[in-house]
Protein backbone atom coordinates (compact mmCIF):
# COMPACT_ATOMS: atom_id res chain seq x y z
CA UNK A 1 0.00 0.00 0.00
CA UNK A 2 2.85 2.33 0.88
CA UNK A 3 4.48 1.38 -2.38
CA UNK A 4 1.39 2.23 -4.38
CA UNK A 5 0.91 5.48 -2.55
CA UNK A 6 4.45 6.66 -3.13
CA UNK A 7 4.16 5.55 -6.77
CA UNK A 8 1.05 7.66 -7.27
CA UNK A 9 2.69 10.52 -5.47
CA UNK A 10 5.54 10.55 -7.94
CA UNK A 11 3.37 10.09 -11.04
CA UNK A 12 3.08 13.83 -11.79
CA UNK A 13 6.85 14.00 -11.91
CA UNK A 14 6.92 11.05 -14.31
CA UNK A 15 4.48 12.90 -16.57
CA UNK A 16 6.60 16.05 -16.42
CA UNK A 17 9.82 14.17 -17.22
CA UNK A 18 7.99 12.13 -19.84
CA UNK A 19 6.73 15.23 -21.65
CA UNK A 20 10.21 16.78 -21.70
CA UNK A 21 11.83 13.58 -22.95
CA UNK A 22 8.87 13.17 -25.30
CA UNK A 23 10.04 16.21 -27.26
CA UNK A 24 13.44 14.54 -27.43
CA UNK A 25 11.75 11.32 -28.59
CA UNK A 26 10.04 13.24 -31.40
CA UNK A 27 13.49 14.36 -32.52
CA UNK A 28 14.65 10.74 -32.49
CA UNK A 29 11.51 9.73 -34.41
CA UNK A 30 12.45 12.15 -37.20
CA UNK A 31 15.89 10.64 -37.73
CA UNK A 32 15.25 7.02 -36.81
CA UNK A 33 11.83 6.50 -38.36
CA UNK A 34 11.47 9.14 -41.06
CA UNK A 35 15.05 9.50 -42.30
CA UNK A 36 16.09 5.95 -41.43
CA UNK A 37 19.31 7.20 -39.81
CA UNK A 38 20.41 6.28 -36.29
CA UNK A 39 21.72 9.62 -35.05
CA UNK A 40 23.93 9.42 -31.98
CA UNK A 41 24.55 13.18 -31.89
CA UNK A 42 21.62 13.48 -29.50
CA UNK A 43 23.55 12.35 -26.40
CA UNK A 44 25.70 15.43 -26.89
CA UNK A 45 23.14 17.87 -28.27
CA UNK A 46 20.73 17.29 -25.37
CA UNK A 47 23.43 18.43 -22.98
CA UNK A 48 24.35 21.29 -25.30
CA UNK A 49 20.74 22.47 -25.18
CA UNK A 50 20.73 22.31 -21.38
CA UNK A 51 24.14 23.98 -21.08
CA UNK A 52 23.42 26.83 -23.48
CA UNK A 53 20.04 27.53 -21.90
CA UNK A 54 21.47 27.45 -18.35
CA UNK A 55 24.37 29.75 -19.25
CA UNK A 56 22.08 32.26 -20.96
CA UNK A 57 19.69 32.27 -18.00
CA UNK A 58 22.47 32.75 -15.42
CA UNK A 59 23.73 35.65 -17.50
CA UNK A 60 20.31 37.19 -17.08
CA UNK A 61 18.84 36.55 -20.54
CA UNK A 62 15.13 36.27 -21.02
CA UNK A 63 14.28 32.56 -20.53
CA UNK A 64 12.42 32.34 -23.87
CA UNK A 65 15.43 33.82 -25.65
CA UNK A 66 17.64 31.33 -23.78
CA UNK A 67 15.40 28.52 -25.03
CA UNK A 68 15.78 29.80 -28.59
CA UNK A 69 19.59 29.98 -28.20
CA UNK A 70 19.59 26.36 -27.00
CA UNK A 71 17.54 25.24 -30.02
CA UNK A 72 19.90 27.04 -32.42
CA UNK A 73 22.93 25.42 -30.74
CA UNK A 74 21.31 22.00 -31.16
CA UNK A 75 20.56 22.72 -34.81
CA UNK A 76 24.20 23.64 -35.32
CA UNK A 77 25.24 20.29 -33.83
CA UNK A 78 22.85 18.54 -36.23
CA UNK A 79 24.32 20.53 -39.11
CA UNK A 80 27.83 19.35 -38.21
CA UNK A 81 26.74 15.70 -38.12
CA UNK A 82 24.85 16.17 -41.38
CA UNK A 83 27.84 17.67 -43.15
CA UNK A 84 30.20 15.03 -41.76
CA UNK A 85 27.84 12.42 -43.20
CA UNK A 86 26.94 13.95 -46.57
CA UNK A 87 29.86 16.20 -47.50
CA UNK A 88 32.59 14.04 -45.94
CA UNK A 89 31.11 10.63 -46.67
CA UNK A 90 31.34 9.40 -43.07
CA UNK A 91 28.73 6.75 -42.15
CA UNK A 92 25.83 8.38 -40.28
CA UNK A 93 26.37 6.48 -37.03
CA UNK A 94 30.06 7.38 -36.91
CA UNK A 95 29.36 11.00 -37.86
CA UNK A 96 26.97 11.22 -34.91
CA UNK A 97 29.48 9.66 -32.53
CA UNK A 98 32.17 12.13 -33.65
CA UNK A 99 29.93 15.14 -33.06
CA UNK A 100 28.79 13.73 -29.73
CA UNK A 101 32.39 13.25 -28.61
CA UNK A 102 33.35 16.76 -29.68
CA UNK A 103 30.31 18.14 -27.86
CA UNK A 104 31.48 16.54 -24.62
CA UNK A 105 34.45 18.91 -24.53
CA UNK A 106 32.45 21.83 -25.87
CA UNK A 107 29.66 21.43 -23.32
CA UNK A 108 32.18 21.65 -20.46
CA UNK A 109 33.44 24.91 -21.95
CA UNK A 110 29.95 26.28 -22.62
CA UNK A 111 28.93 25.83 -18.99
CA UNK A 112 31.93 27.91 -17.85
CA UNK A 113 31.03 30.87 -20.09
CA UNK A 114 30.66 34.01 -17.99
CA UNK A 115 32.58 32.57 -15.05
CA UNK A 116 35.99 34.24 -14.80
CA UNK A 117 37.26 31.64 -12.31
CA UNK A 118 36.76 28.50 -14.39
CA UNK A 119 37.66 27.37 -17.91
CA UNK A 120 35.39 24.32 -17.80
CA UNK A 121 32.45 23.23 -15.67
CA UNK A 122 30.64 19.91 -15.31
CA UNK A 123 27.53 21.33 -13.65
CA UNK A 124 25.71 24.60 -13.75
CA UNK A 125 23.04 25.05 -11.10
CA UNK A 126 19.89 27.06 -11.70
CA UNK A 127 17.78 28.34 -8.87
CA UNK A 128 14.08 28.84 -9.25
CA UNK A 129 14.29 31.55 -6.56
CA UNK A 130 17.12 33.58 -8.07
CA UNK A 131 16.92 32.80 -11.78
CA UNK A 132 14.09 33.48 -14.16
CA UNK A 133 12.92 29.97 -15.10
CA UNK A 134 9.99 28.91 -17.28
CA UNK A 135 9.38 25.75 -15.30
CA UNK A 136 10.57 23.83 -12.26
CA UNK A 137 9.92 20.40 -10.85
CA UNK A 138 9.26 22.06 -7.50
CA UNK A 139 5.75 22.99 -8.66
CA UNK A 140 4.85 19.70 -10.34
CA UNK A 141 2.12 18.92 -7.77
CA UNK A 142 0.80 22.50 -7.56
CA UNK A 143 -2.60 23.29 -8.95
CA UNK A 144 -1.53 26.78 -9.97
CA UNK A 145 -0.26 28.19 -13.25
CA UNK A 146 3.27 27.59 -11.97
CA UNK A 147 2.81 23.87 -12.60
CA UNK A 148 5.30 22.91 -15.36
CA UNK A 149 2.61 20.91 -17.16
CA UNK A 150 0.90 24.21 -17.98
CA UNK A 151 3.89 25.00 -20.17
CA UNK A 152 4.92 21.50 -21.28
CA UNK A 153 1.58 20.34 -22.69
CA UNK A 154 1.07 23.33 -25.04
CA UNK A 155 4.75 23.28 -26.09
CA UNK A 156 4.51 19.58 -26.95
CA UNK A 157 1.30 20.09 -28.89
CA UNK A 158 2.81 23.07 -30.72
CA UNK A 159 5.86 21.00 -31.71
CA UNK A 160 3.62 18.22 -33.01
CA UNK A 161 1.42 20.69 -34.92
CA UNK A 162 4.44 22.38 -36.53
CA UNK A 163 5.97 19.08 -37.59
CA UNK A 164 2.61 17.82 -38.87
CA UNK A 165 2.39 20.90 -41.05
CA UNK A 166 6.03 20.71 -42.15
CA UNK A 167 5.98 17.06 -43.19
CA UNK A 168 2.90 17.78 -45.29
CA UNK A 169 4.68 20.46 -47.33
CA UNK A 170 6.59 19.82 -50.55
CA UNK A 171 9.87 20.02 -48.66
CA UNK A 172 8.66 17.76 -45.85
CA UNK A 173 7.34 15.19 -48.34
CA UNK A 174 10.72 15.22 -50.06
CA UNK A 175 12.32 14.49 -46.70
CA UNK A 176 9.98 11.56 -46.13
CA UNK A 177 10.75 10.23 -49.61
CA UNK A 178 14.48 10.51 -48.86
CA UNK A 179 14.03 8.27 -45.83
CA UNK A 180 11.70 5.87 -47.63
CA UNK A 181 13.69 5.30 -50.82
CA UNK A 182 16.78 7.30 -51.76
CA UNK A 183 17.05 5.99 -55.32
CA UNK A 184 13.45 6.98 -55.98
CA UNK A 185 13.92 10.36 -54.30
CA UNK A 186 16.92 11.20 -56.47
CA UNK A 187 15.14 10.02 -59.61
CA UNK A 188 12.37 12.50 -58.71
CA UNK A 189 14.91 15.30 -58.45
CA UNK A 190 15.18 15.38 -54.67
CA UNK A 191 18.55 16.37 -53.19
CA UNK A 192 18.84 13.53 -50.68
CA UNK A 193 21.98 14.95 -49.03
CA UNK A 194 20.21 18.21 -48.31
CA UNK A 195 17.23 16.27 -46.98
CA UNK A 196 19.37 14.32 -44.54
CA UNK A 197 21.15 17.44 -43.29
CA UNK A 198 17.86 19.27 -42.86
CA UNK A 199 16.36 16.33 -40.97
CA UNK A 200 19.36 16.14 -38.63
CA UNK A 201 19.18 19.90 -38.03
CA UNK A 202 15.47 19.82 -37.14
CA UNK A 203 15.89 16.70 -35.00
CA UNK A 204 18.80 18.04 -32.96
CA UNK A 205 17.04 21.38 -32.54
CA UNK A 206 14.19 19.51 -30.85
CA UNK A 207 16.60 17.45 -28.76
CA UNK A 208 18.31 20.64 -27.56
CA UNK A 209 14.89 22.15 -26.77
CA UNK A 210 14.23 19.09 -24.62
CA UNK A 211 17.63 19.52 -22.90
CA UNK A 212 16.92 23.21 -22.24
CA UNK A 213 13.55 22.39 -20.66
CA UNK A 214 15.12 19.58 -18.66
CA UNK A 215 17.88 21.80 -17.24
CA UNK A 216 15.26 24.26 -15.98
CA UNK A 217 12.96 21.53 -14.74
CA UNK A 218 15.63 19.76 -12.69
CA UNK A 219 17.38 23.01 -11.72
CA UNK A 220 20.75 22.28 -13.28
CA UNK A 221 22.62 21.48 -16.44
CA UNK A 222 25.12 18.66 -16.00
CA UNK A 223 27.63 17.30 -18.42
CA UNK A 224 26.19 13.79 -18.20
CA UNK A 225 22.50 14.69 -18.53
CA UNK A 226 22.48 13.43 -22.12
CA UNK A 227 24.27 10.14 -21.52
CA UNK A 228 22.18 7.35 -23.03
CA UNK A 229 19.63 9.86 -24.33
CA UNK A 230 19.45 8.09 -27.70
CA UNK A 231 18.41 4.87 -25.98
CA UNK A 232 15.73 6.62 -23.91
CA UNK A 233 14.47 8.30 -27.08
CA UNK A 234 14.37 4.96 -28.90
CA UNK A 235 12.64 3.36 -25.93
CA UNK A 236 9.95 6.04 -26.05
CA UNK A 237 9.47 5.69 -29.82
CA UNK A 238 9.31 1.92 -29.63
CA UNK A 239 7.06 1.69 -26.58
CA UNK A 240 4.72 4.17 -28.26
CA UNK A 241 4.68 2.15 -31.46
CA UNK A 242 4.18 -1.21 -29.81
CA UNK A 243 1.27 0.04 -27.72
CA UNK A 244 -0.40 2.48 -30.09
CA UNK A 245 0.52 1.78 -33.72
CA UNK A 246 -2.73 -0.10 -34.31
CA UNK A 247 -4.84 2.81 -33.13
CA UNK A 248 -2.71 5.81 -34.13
CA UNK A 249 -2.27 5.90 -37.90
CA UNK A 250 -2.27 9.64 -38.51
CA UNK A 251 1.20 11.22 -38.57
CA UNK A 252 0.47 13.69 -35.76
CA UNK A 253 -0.80 10.83 -33.61
CA UNK A 254 2.35 8.84 -34.35
CA UNK A 255 4.41 11.72 -32.98
CA UNK A 256 2.09 11.88 -29.99
CA UNK A 257 2.60 8.16 -29.41
CA UNK A 258 6.35 8.81 -29.01
CA UNK A 259 5.50 11.33 -26.27
CA UNK A 260 3.11 8.89 -24.63
CA UNK A 261 5.85 6.26 -24.90
CA UNK A 262 8.19 8.58 -23.00
CA UNK A 263 5.59 9.17 -20.27
CA UNK A 264 5.02 5.43 -19.89
CA UNK A 265 8.77 4.90 -19.79
CA UNK A 266 9.13 7.34 -16.89
CA UNK A 267 6.12 5.87 -15.07
CA UNK A 268 7.69 2.42 -15.29
CA UNK A 269 11.07 3.78 -14.18
CA UNK A 270 9.41 5.43 -11.19
CA UNK A 271 7.73 2.18 -10.23
CA UNK A 272 10.94 0.20 -10.59
CA UNK A 273 12.81 2.70 -8.41
CA UNK A 274 10.12 2.36 -5.75
CA UNK A 275 10.63 -1.40 -5.89
CA UNK A 276 14.19 -0.91 -4.66
CA UNK A 277 16.42 -0.67 -7.72
CA UNK A 278 19.16 1.94 -7.64
CA UNK A 279 18.87 4.84 -10.08
CA UNK A 280 22.23 3.80 -11.50
CA UNK A 281 20.64 0.50 -12.60
CA UNK A 282 18.30 2.36 -14.94
CA UNK A 283 20.62 2.42 -17.93
CA UNK A 284 20.92 -1.36 -17.81
CA UNK A 285 17.16 -1.66 -17.58
CA UNK A 286 16.58 0.77 -20.45
CA UNK A 287 19.08 -1.02 -22.67
CA UNK A 288 17.34 -4.34 -21.95
CA UNK A 289 13.89 -2.94 -22.70
CA UNK A 290 15.01 -1.43 -26.01
CA UNK A 291 16.89 -4.58 -27.03
CA UNK A 292 13.85 -6.75 -26.35
CA UNK A 293 11.39 -4.46 -28.12
CA UNK A 294 13.69 -4.23 -31.16
CA UNK A 295 14.17 -8.00 -31.23
CA UNK A 296 10.48 -8.92 -31.05
CA UNK A 297 9.52 -7.72 -34.56
CA UNK A 298 12.60 -9.45 -35.98
CA UNK A 299 11.81 -12.74 -34.29
CA UNK A 300 8.20 -12.47 -35.38
CA UNK A 301 9.27 -11.91 -38.97
CA UNK A 302 11.62 -14.90 -38.90
CA UNK A 303 9.02 -17.16 -37.36
CA UNK A 304 6.35 -16.27 -39.89
CA UNK A 305 8.65 -16.42 -42.90
CA UNK A 306 9.11 -20.13 -42.28
CA UNK A 307 5.41 -20.65 -42.88
CA UNK A 308 4.81 -18.44 -45.88
CA UNK A 309 6.81 -16.15 -48.10
CA UNK A 310 5.89 -12.56 -47.64
CA UNK A 311 5.60 -9.88 -50.30
CA UNK A 312 5.05 -10.62 -53.92
CA UNK A 313 7.08 -8.14 -55.85
CA UNK A 314 8.44 -10.75 -58.20
CA UNK A 315 5.35 -12.94 -58.36
CA UNK A 316 2.77 -10.30 -59.04
Amino acid sequence: MDLLLSFFNSLPNAVGQGLIWGIMAIGVYITYRILDVADLTVDGSLTTGGAVCAVCITMGWNPWLSLLAAVLAGMLAGLVTGLLHTACGIPAILAGILTQLALYSLNLRIMAIGDPNAATKATLALSVDNDQLLLSSRYIRYTTLENPLVLLIPVTLLVIALLYWFFGTELGSALRATGANQAMARAQGINTSFGKVLGLVVSNGLVALSGALLAQYQGSATNDMGRGAIVIGLAAVIIGEVLLSRVFRNFALKLLSAVIGAIIYYAVITLVLRLGLESTDLKLLTALVVAIFLAIPYWKGRYFSKHFRRGGASHA
Binding site: G168, T169, E170, G172, S173, Q188, G189, I190
Partner: peptide
Amino acid sequence: LALARRRGASRTLRPGI
Protein backbone atom coordinates in the same frame (compact mmCIF):
# COMPACT_ATOMS: atom_id res chain seq x y z
CA LEU B 1 2.52 10.93 -57.66
CA ALA B 2 2.74 14.33 -55.96
CA LEU B 3 6.51 13.85 -55.52
CA ALA B 4 6.80 13.04 -59.21
CA ARG B 5 4.62 16.04 -60.16
CA ARG B 6 7.32 18.26 -58.58
CA ARG B 7 10.27 16.68 -60.37
CA GLY B 8 12.53 19.47 -61.55
CA ALA B 9 10.76 22.15 -59.49
CA SER B 10 12.12 23.50 -56.23
CA ARG B 11 10.52 22.02 -53.11
CA THR B 12 9.03 24.77 -51.01
CA LEU B 13 6.80 25.08 -47.95
CA ARG B 14 3.67 24.94 -50.08
CA PRO B 15 1.39 21.94 -49.48
CA GLY B 16 2.90 18.66 -50.70
CA ILE B 17 -0.34 17.79 -52.48
